[in-house]
C-alpha cells in the first residue's frame, strides 16, 4: 500500500488519517494508538496550563514532536474572536517546539455545546482573519455545500466537513452532501484537499468517507473510546487504505436485479 502523498498547503503526508489526542484513558494508550493508526498528523487543544495527570505528566511527555506534525485546534471556541486568540496561542507554542504545525490551525467556531456544530458565520469571519495573519486554515464545517464553497472562496487551505456531530459515532450521515461538496470544491481544482472530520464510529465509516472521494479522515473518539482502542486504531488505518484504493478502482454500478457470476452455458440442470 503506497498511496500518493496527500498535499495540503506546504505539507505532504503519506498517511491520510489524522488522529486526535483527546479522551484516551492514559497517555501510554494514546501513544500506542497513534502508532497503530500509522498517522502522521495529530490534533491537540490549547488549554490553561494545569492539565497534568496523577504523576504530573503532560501530553507532550508522550508525543514525539519530531515525528508528528501537530495540528492545533480551536475546540471550545464559540466566537470568531476566541478562535483567533486560541489559534495565535497555539502557533506561539508550536513555534517553541519547532514543529511544522506552527503554520496551520484546525479552526472550529462552534454554535452550541449540545450539537457542537459549527457556526457558519463565525467560522467564515475567523477563516478570513487567520488567513490575513498568515495561517493555513483547516476549517471544520458542516456538510452544507454552500458553507463549504464560501470557506474555500475565503482561502481555506482545506475544508473539513463533518460526517456527523463530533464524538457522535454516527458516521457519514449525508453522503450526498459530502459528494456534492467534493464535486464543487474540486471542480477545476482536483487536488484541493477535503477531509471528513468528525462523527466516525467505526472503521467502515472511514472507508465510506474515502470511497466518496475524500482526501483524508480526521477522527478521535472512534479510536479513543473503542473497547480496544489499539485494535480500532489498526482497523482505521486499514479502512482508510481500503477506501482510498476502492475510490480509485471504480466501483460497479448498482443494479436492481441479479446478474450471475457463473456462466449460464454448460450448467447441468435441465
Amino acid at each position: 500500500m503506497d498511496p500518493a502523498p496527500l498535499k495540503i498547503g506546504p505539507y505532504a503526508f503519506r498517511s491520510r488519517l489524522f488522529v486526535g489526542t483527546g479522551k484516551y484513558s492514559t497517555y501510554e494508550l494514546m501513544r500506542e494508538c497513534l502508532e497503530a493508526s500509522r498517522c502522521e498528523v495529530v490534533t491537540v487543544a490549547v488549554r490553561r496550563e494545569r492539565l497534568y495527570d496523577a504523576q504530573n505528566r503532560s501530553l507532550l511527555d508522550f508525543l514525539d514532536t519530531k515525528r508528528y506534525t501537530i495540528l492545533p485546534n480551536t475546540a471550545g471556541c464559540f466566537t470568531a474572536e476566541d478562535a483567533i486568540r486560541v489559534a495565535r496561542l497555539g502557533r506561539e507554542i508550536l513555534e517553541q517546539l519547532e514543529n511544522p504545525g506552527a503554520s496551520w490551525v484546525k479552526l472550529e467556531v462552534l454554535h452550541d455545546k449540545k450539537t457542537l456544530l459549527p457556526d457558519p458565520i463565525g467560522t467564515l469571519e475567523a477563516t478570513r482573519e487567520l488567513i490575513k495573519d498568515g495561517f493555513h486554515v483547516m476549517v471544520y464545517s458542516s456538510d452544507d455545500p454552500a458553507a463549504a464553497c464560501r470557506l474555500k472562496e475565503a482561502g481555506a487551505t482545506s475544508v473539513m466537513p463533518a460526517g456527523s456531530p463530533i464524538g457522535s459515532g454516527q458516521g457519514v450521515l449525508n453522503p450526498n452532501n459530502i459528494r456534492i461538496i467534493l464535486e464543487m470544491l474540486k471542480e477545476g481544482d482536483p487536488a484541493y484537499p477535503v477531509i471528513v472530520d468528525a462523527g466516525v464510529g467505526t472503521a467502515s465509516d472511514v472507508t465510506i468517507a474515502m470511497e466518496l472521494g475524500a482526501d483524508g479522515v480526521l477522527l478521535n473518539t472512534g479510536i479513543a473510546h473503542a473497547k480496544d482502542p489499539v485494535a480500532m486504531a489498526r482497523a482505521m488505518a486499514h479502512a482508510l487504505d481500503a477506501g482510498f484504493l476502492a475510490a480509485r478502482a471504480g466501483r460497479i454500478s448498482r443494479k436492481l436485479y441479479a446478474t450471475a457470476s457463473s456462466p449460464v452455458e454448460g450448467v447441468i440442470v435441465y
Binding site: 487543544a45 490549547v46 485546534n73 507554542i93 468528525a198 477522527l219 473518539t221
Partner: peptide, 30 residues
Amino acid sequence: NRRLVRRAEYESTPLAEGDCVEIVTLVGGG
C-alpha cells in the same frame, strides 16, 4: 487581556491592576 504576548515581549510588557492573564499549553484534543 486577550492579546498574545510573544516571548520576546515578556520583559517589556507591563502588568496593570485588574489585568487578565492566560497561560496556556497543549493538551489532548480532537
